[in-house]
């Protein structure tokens, strides 16, 4: 009996060790897999979080979407396996490559990995002045009209100087282009914007007024919180603003507004067509990536919302923004203005 028991225990130990060995081998094999992931600057922390993954080695390149796009547009060989980015960048890269007689780079992205509504942040007490000037509803159209003016022109204090809007540079930064698109849709009152609309002189005057007032000093939500008078109005994502504002210990927190209709930054994983590691990449982003993104303030299905993310603000079915093609045209238009 004792012998039989000892035999069973020994056999169990051997089987167990084989299983453990197998898992170690599998993990080592996965670890030897190197994923090259390009990330937009807005996702720097998220992607650095993925780089620390225990299962696979992830080489992360963090750079503005425009920099990646400009490199890939003419590249013979892509130096990445996937790109974590918002529309329209992968589509715009492939369109440009096709025009140049080059092959497309990206496989279809599929559904967004994560989403975040675009928000407007306004410093207090300037928010009250702006609200009054905007007829009680602050939106990009009104901000654009106020941008070339001084606060004292619209009922604010002389000491506040000019109205100082800021958003990421739409020529290069993914969120910057989305914010500019949201502003354009707000000015025109619709999302079915055509390229002809972008040539409308009244629109161009308004857009120039807004963009030329945007501060050139590199800004961020952190800057708004730590150097309050540096910028007065900021356009960004809820993911960028919500958690930071919620945890901030500042005297007066900026007001977070969700301009109606709500528009969203939809985060896509654009895998390189034909890449052998697409499956691993999708699994990484779809697994650990989703957790990291949710923790960083992005809305991810099935994940808890981070502090500062407003569950009471529902997301639309689509992005609420003009088409990808229009966004690419808008980028070109903004390059001329700025």
């Amino acid at each position: 009996m004792r012998r039989a028991l000892a035999f069973v225990v020994a056999a169990g130990m051997i089987a167990g060790s084989l299983v453990v060995r197998d898992r170690i081998d599998e993990r080592n094999a996965r670890k030897r897999t190197v994923l090259r992931l390009a990330c937009v600057t807005e996702l720097e922390d998220v992607c650095n979080g993925l780089a620390g993954s225990r299962d696979v080695r992830v080489d992360v390149v963090v750079e503005p979407a425009g920099t990646t796009a400009d490199r890939l547009r003419t590249a013979k060989v892509a130096d990445l396996d996937g790109w974590l980015v918002t529309p329209p960048w992968p589509e715009a890269v492939d369109a440009a490559r096709q025009r140049a007689g080059l092959t497309k780079l990206f496989a279809p992205s599929g559904a967004p990995v994560a989403r975040s509504p675009l928000v407007l942040l306004v410093q207090r007490p300037r928010e009250q002045v702006l609200r009054a000037a905007c007829g009680n509803a602050i939106g990009w159209k009104c901000v654009g009209e106020a941008a070339p003016k001084r606060w004292s022109d619209i009922g604010g204090m002389q000491a506040w100087g000019p109205v100082k809007p800021w958003h990421p540079d739409p020529r290069d930064e993914a969120v910057g282009l989305l914010v500019a698109a949201q502003a354009t849709a707000a000015y025109l009152g619709r999302t079915d914007v055509s390229t002809d609309d972008l040539d409308d002189p009244a629109y161009l005057d308004w857009l120039s007024g807004l963009e030329l007032a945007v501060r050139r000093t590199r800004g961020s939500v952190t800057d708004m919180l730590t150097a309050p008078a540096q910028v007065d109005v900021v356009g960004t994502t809820e993911a960028d603003a919500g958690p930071q504002i919620a945890s901030a210990e500042v005297t007066e927190k900026p007001v977070v507004l969700y301009p109606r209709p709500v528009a969203t930054a939809d985060l896509l994983l654009a895998p390189l067509a034909g890449s052998r590691v697409t499956g691993v990449l999708r699994s990484l982003v779809g697994g650990e990536g989703r957790r990291v993104l949710a923790k960083a303030g992005w809305r991810v299905e099935g994940q808890d919302l981070a502090r500062g993310v407003q569950a009471s603000v529902p997301l639309p079915a689509g992005s609420g923004l003009p088409s990808s093609g229009l966004l690419a045209a808008l980028r070109a238009s903004l390059a001329e203005i700025r």
Partner: peptide, 24 residues
């Protein structure tokens, strides 16, 4: 880091004003 509130020694007792500048 906005998680740390601005306070002493940045106060009027030291000749400075945490609520300034109003324009940058």
């Amino acid at each position: 880091n906005p998680q740390v509130r601005v306070g002493a020694p940045i106060d009027r007792a030291n000749g400075v004003d945490a609520n300034q500048p109003q324009n940058v």
